[in-house]
Amino acid sequence: MYSVIVAEDEPWIRGAVVEMIEKAGKQFQVVGEAETGEEAWELIQSTWPLLLITDIRMPDMDGLALIQKIREHQIPMAIIIVSGYDNFQYAQQAISLGVTDYLLKPVEYSQLTTVLDRCKETIAAHKELNECFVRIQAFIEKMFDSDPRTLLRKQHDLVQSILSLKLLNAGACRNLLRLFESRIRQTCDEMGIDSKFQIIRAGHDNDVVLEDFRGLLLQWITEYPHVKSQDTKLIIDQLIKQLNLQYKKDWSLQEMAEYTQLSPSHFGVLFKKQTGMSPVNYINRIRVEQAKERLMQTDKKIYEIAEEVGFSNLPYFTRLFKQVAGLTPKEFRKRLGQ
């Protein structure tokens, strides 16, 4: 199964692309939809898709900025851009950033399936790297609450597995190790822990590399308890209260991070640790729960309820409701005998 995120600010285009992907067969599965580049970036970091289909022009962060960010972080995925004739120059810039393919609007089913087929080779090449990214992200999230012995063991196993990858060349393994190192350093820096002195010697004997990673992590283990903010849980709890009160608002990741006075990446990790889900998924779950209440207690039309809880697009609301509740709004209401 190839996981897909669709990023498009026009609801009817996004919905049409999602439906065409679902129609194309079980090999591709949409795991997230985004209205802005910023929302897509958050979804990427929580779902690690193998394929991104993105518009060029979007609010907050456009498609080009999103693609550049993906490349800067060396995230392995195939990328298809969706472009109108009037912004084809932007599409050409995206192609220079190494996108896999592009589609012109309006997107047609035959064109999409052809492009998806062309992407399979790229996706297959990225799959092993993608799995490593998922493991690295899971490790970073565990840095905040795992006991030292468990953390050291997990890091040793992860570094060892990267060094043992048989399908990657030496250069790809070095890049993966550098990425893992940079993620640990970034986490240290965001908590005010100086990690500058330690350098991972990725070209050396495996035992040397393992020892270098151990030294870097020991620095985190030693200093994190002293810099850990006792107020972080309280601050996120306060944000959660605001999200429950203002669930109709289009909260951006940047807005939420600013509310907690944390960096967006650090905020995302801590929010997921505290709630078990990403900020976007948390807000969507609140909206679905609110919709359930209205479906049970009123006889309003489904599109009216969708608008009341913050969704301007009925097909998107229906898909999201089914993801969360396991039923469409219509099926949910039918189960209630209404």
Results as ranks from 00 to 15, higher is better:
Trp12Ile: 07
Ile13Asn: 07
Val17Phe: 02
Lys26Phe: 03
Gln29Met: 13
Gly32Cys: 07
Glu39Ala: 13
Trp41Ile: 05
Glu42Arg: 02
Leu43Trp: 04
Leu51Lys: 01
Thr54Cys: 12
Met61Ser: 03
Met61Pro: 00
Leu64Ile: 15
Lys69Thr: 14
Pro76Lys: 09
Ile81Arg: 01
Asp86Ser: 12
Phe88Leu: 14
Tyr90Val: 02
Gly98Ser: 10
Asp101Cys: 02
Asp101Asn: 10
Leu103Tyr: 05
Leu103Ala: 06
Lys105Asp: 14
Gln111Met: 10
Leu112Gly: 00
Leu116Thr: 00
Asp117Glu: 12
Arg118Gly: 00
Lys127Tyr: 04
Val134Phe: 01
Ile140Tyr: 12
Ile140Arg: 12
Lys142Met: 10
Lys142Cys: 14
Ser146Asp: 07
Asp147Ile: 07
Arg149Ser: 08
Arg149Asp: 09
Arg153Asp: 13
Asp157Ser: 04
Ser164Ile: 04
Leu168Pro: 09
Arg174Leu: 06
Leu177Phe: 04
Leu177Val: 02
Leu179Asp: 15
Glu181Cys: 00
Cys188Met: 11
Glu190Gly: 10
Gly192Leu: 07
Ile193Ala: 03
Gln198Thr: 15
Ile199Cys: 10
Asn206Glu: 12
Asn206Leu: 01
Leu210Pro: 01
Glu211Gly: 03
Gly215Gln: 06
Ile221Met: 07
Asp231Trp: 10
Ile235Met: 03
Ile235Tyr: 01
Ile240Asp: 05
Lys241Arg: 10
Leu243His: 14
Ser252Phe: 04
Leu253Ile: 13
Gln254Ala: 14
Ala257Leu: 04
Glu258Gln: 15
Val269Arg: 15
Leu270Pro: 00
Lys272Gly: 03
Thr275Glu: 09
Met277Glu: 08
Pro279Arg: 12
Asn281Ser: 14
Asn284Ile: 05
Val288Lys: 00
Glu289Lys: 00
Glu289Val: 00
Lys292Leu: 10
Lys292Tyr: 06
Lys292Ile: 15
Lys292Phe: 09
Met296Thr: 09
Ile302Leu: 13
Tyr303His: 10
Phe321Gln: 08
Ala325His: 03
Gly326Asn: 02
